[in-house]
Simulated assay, not measured.
Amino acid sequence: MAGLPPVPQPIGIFGQFIAQQPETLILKEKVLSLTGDSFSIKLQNGTPILQVEGKVMSLSGRKTVRDMAGNHLFDIVKEHFHIHTTFAIKDPQDRKIMEVKSKFQLLGSKAIGTFTSSNGKAEELQMKGNWFDTTADITDEAQSGIVVARINRKLLSGKDILFGQQTYALQVAPGVDMALMVAMCIAMDEKNNEK
């Protein structure tokens, strides 16, 4: 898998998670997790970088994202009462720092992620997937449509089918916030689970 080229200007909120080189993250849903949908997120070499804990019995499907030291980075929360499926990314003080909103598209899927980068720049990233949502590109239209991340759902194994488990490979370009790309990938997974 060839790495994505670096972005001209950094994109993100969490400086410690800005990719310094092309990175591929593996997001693996935990089988039969007692806490709801939980994910382990590791670099391709197996180094864990984030942990995602789902909340059982939560109407919003709240997922808490922590770094490996256990620091609470943000929550992913489904917002209700929207025409299109919408997820809010909220900081530990419950302030919205990012929104991922799906858009109607005849074939495939499309969502827009909006947030303000740590440098104060308003960002709008577009996520477009194929009809079966096995792949998606996340692009920055303001920077000439450059691909900032690429999601690829690995082919299902028997265990994945039996337990409804998903595994994603998430390529992230240098200069892009890996934690926010994980949030967009999980929002896509949650929307797909609604089907």
Results as ranks from 00 to 15, higher is better:
residue 88 A to V: 08
residue 75 D to I: 01
residue 121 K to S: 00
residue 134 T to I: 09
residue 93 Q to G: 13
residue 113 G to H: 11
residue 103 K to C: 07
residue 110 K to S: 13
residue 97 I to Y: 05
residue 127 M to Q: 09
residue 129 G to R: 03
residue 77 V to A: 05
residue 92 P to T: 12
residue 101 K to W: 01
residue 109 S to W: 14
residue 121 K to R: 13
residue 111 A to V: 01
residue 125 L to R: 01
residue 81 F to I: 12
residue 102 S to W: 11
residue 100 V to D: 10
residue 89 I to F: 01
residue 104 F to W: 12
residue 104 F to N: 10
residue 131 W to D: 14
residue 97 I to H: 10
residue 118 S to Y: 14
residue 139 T to I: 01
residue 127 M to P: 03
residue 85 T to D: 15
residue 94 D to V: 09
residue 79 E to N: 02
residue 92 P to C: 08
residue 124 E to H: 09
residue 120 G to C: 11
residue 113 G to K: 04
residue 125 L to D: 12
residue 123 E to T: 03
residue 89 I to P: 04
residue 138 I to N: 08
residue 122 A to M: 07
residue 82 H to M: 02
residue 113 G to M: 14
residue 113 G to S: 12
residue 88 A to S: 12
residue 123 E to L: 03
residue 80 H to V: 04
residue 79 E to P: 07
residue 126 Q to S: 07
residue 106 L to H: 10
residue 99 E to L: 07
residue 86 T to S: 11
residue 100 V to A: 09
residue 85 T to K: 13
residue 79 E to G: 01
residue 129 G to A: 11
residue 124 E to D: 06
residue 96 K to F: 09
residue 119 N to W: 08
residue 120 G to M: 10
residue 73 L to Y: 02
residue 93 Q to V: 05
residue 99 E to F: 03
residue 129 G to I: 12
residue 130 N to E: 11
residue 124 E to Y: 02
residue 79 E to W: 03
residue 78 K to E: 00
residue 106 L to A: 12
residue 127 M to A: 14
residue 100 V to T: 11
residue 95 R to T: 06
residue 105 Q to W: 02
residue 107 L to S: 15
